[in-house]
Design a protein around this nucleic acid. Structure first.
Lengths: 132, 132
DNA sequence: GGGAGTGGTATCAAAAAGAAACCACGTATC
DNA sequence: GATACGTGGTTTCTTTTTGATACCACTCCC
């Protein structure tokens, strides 16, 4: 009864499809579908920002997760990390061109959250009330 | 030494700011900054879809997480859940007007992932090569 | 020499995600 | 008439991820 398994050995060559489990775009969506990554990218939209400044600005992020997400974003070619050999070392993060092509979509999301918050709260109250 | 705790009793009335830890928009970004939520919303963009259809289409999501995310999206007023008392019960999910105002931002992200995937892979290879 | 600021990493507990089983119901299959 | 399947979930358990905290080397300030 295990004979029904299909290896899904299709090469998937030119079809990028976020719905497919084995599609590489899923890995991108894993990265982008993360509130911290969205906030970091949004914060870098217009500024070059240092590590501890990001940590201070993005209230609630832990140092561990911040360095982790930054490392991934850097690996994806979205941001650049520049180290200056100053006395306490200075590290600056900024958007790379590829990241800039993404920033519009990202800020759409964060901006949507800010502009539609009141409607969401209203819906939540309605929902909670209907559930008792 | 506990005297330094500030209650943060500021009313924060009209300032919605995703960077602030205690801002309600953070809760929205928590929801939206989730790959499964993005995929579900994207899938509902043009269709009314049933539970198990979503589960089949969005490859890799578990039943538990699917029902969980759907419940949250419904609570936020983004999607509607309609139950038909058919023989095996039929449940349909679809976007509500509020969700439709969001869908452009969401599909921007998923579409970005699909169109820029090759550049990301290139960046990843470069990064990995530089690290060894 | 005590404290602060630089940019992280290491450690450990708590929370979340994933895998799998289970549920009631009815229908089709054998 | 027992078995398996499909419906839309919930429950349980394990594994992964997160968050909090401490720690690191280094230097400046007083």
């Amino acid at each position: 009864m295990v004979t029904s398994e299909k290896p899904a050995s299709r090469p998937q060559a030119l079809c990028f499809n976020v719905y497919a489990k084995d599609c590489p775009t899923r890995l991108v969506l894993d990265r982008l579908g993360d509130k911290w990554a969205l906030l970091i990218l949004d914060r870098l939209q217009n500024d070059v920002v240092r590590f501890n400044a990001l940590k201070r600005d993005i209230h609630g992020i832990s140092q561990k997760v911040l360095s982790q997400v930054l490392k991934n974003l850097e690996r994806d070619g979205l941001i650049s990390r520049t180290v200056y050999p100053t006395v306490p070392v200075t590290v600056e993060y900024s958007l790379k061109p590829l990241g800039m092509t993404l920033i519009q979509a990202v800020s759409s999301l964060t901006h949507w959250a800010e502009t539609h918050m009141s409607e969401i709260e209203k819906a939540q109250h309605l929902y909670d009330a209907s559930k008792d």
